[in-house]
Write a protein that binds this DNA or RNA. Sequence first.
DNA 1: GCCAACCTACCGGGCGGTCGGTAGACTACT
DNA 2: AGTAGTCTACCGACCGCCCGGTAGGTTGGC
Lengths: 221, 221
Amino acid sequence: MTALDTAALRDAAREPAAERDQDRRAEIYRNAARIFHRKGYHATSINDIAAAVGLTKAGLYYYIKGKQDLLFAIMGFAMDQLDEQVIEPARRVQDPQARLETIVARHARLITQDSSALTILVNELEGLLPDDRADIIGRQRDYVDFIADTLAALRDEGKVIGLDPTVGAFSLVGMILWISRWYRADGRLDGDEVVAEVTRMAISAVLNRGDHSNAGDLETG
Amino acid sequence: MTALDTAALRDAAREPAAERDQDRRAEIYRNAARIFHRKGYHATSINDIAAAVGLTKAGLYYYIKGKQDLLFAIMGFAMDQLDEQVIEPARRVQDPQARLETIVARHARLITQDSSALTILVNELEGLLPDDRADIIGRQRDYVDFIADTLAALRDEGKVIGLDPTVGAFSLVGMILWISRWYRADGRLDGDEVVAEVTRMAISAVLNRGDHSNAGDLETG
DNA sequence: GCCAACCTACCGGGCGGTCGGTAGACTACT
DNA sequence: AGTAGTCTACCGACCGCCCGGTAGGTTGGC
């Protein structure tokens, strides 16, 4: 939940005045993300958010333009986080397998650290205005394509055989995103262990291997 | 979308009279599932559903008790589907690896055939009343435990080393459920191909293998 | 005549959002 | 030092709308 604070600090640095204002704004986004995450966007009222930051609804509107802008800002922030903490670092890794490991591990770690914004990013798309939604979907699509390209590079190296890169990319993303549904920071495993486990599974899911065939039934049911 | 019809037929069979009534009821659940799936539970109004089946809101209430019961019924149906089409058939498979393949393939196939009820099952839990939610969550937990037990059996056979069964189970479930977000029946791959790809990935994600280690970076970022 | 299968009209309430204020800090001028 | 003006950071009250749900019919087939 500290993640949104850093964005606030960044903004505050470039706007000399009104730093207290930016603190307040960050607190609002932070609380909104938490509540949207817990209850869902549509089930969250502006009053819920206002109360969480100790304001009335009218007071809250001094800081925000509307509920939809709040959602879009949170999703934009989550997407920025993904760009900066996952995609950019991974782009600097040349070896495709190491790059894939970087992607999975870093994305998974972001989720174990603070899943709210990243989870909203995938669950609340339909709450956005069409233009905003197109923007976010485009960026998400770029991310999946980036993973698919990495899988294609692995295929060219002969490390992957017979896997559709797009299906592979989506499947890995699903595995990663789902972490936010079951991982609890106070659970049996700590975040680093979970990240390591998931990364290992992801890599071996796509890499070439001996034949494991062992017909599972699929007669009509 | 034909899935809910079978439930209606089942119910109709045990209630001799009012079979037309049951048809109508099935159509309502079917449409409700489709719209909840597309727009989300909270963003869907009773009017939306009524209009979709050619009734007014008041007319719809002749058939349903309320919005929350509608949701619970859909999720209960989805859970029944999972029990009957995935868990029960898999229970009859003794070999752990074949059982795991059965689980993944059958669950994935259900989703490619009609994802609406199964997707609502995982996305709209917070729309339920506490008692209903506890019911559904319990059944979902049983499903994950069933997969985890299967992974534990594979570990006992030496086919899996060093994978936490619970993390493995959740990860596979995430991979499967995510299919509903990207798979399109009119897309490049047909349903059977997608099921086969995902099943292969799932199996090789958990099965033992040569060492693929190839340090992905994880310095603090 | 009766009952299943609807409808029109309505209810209370909560929603996102706005409006007209105003307390208090801070500044500007005398 | 005093005071008038200004601006930030809010609040109480309100708006129109739509929501889930209901009361009380009406109609057509048996």
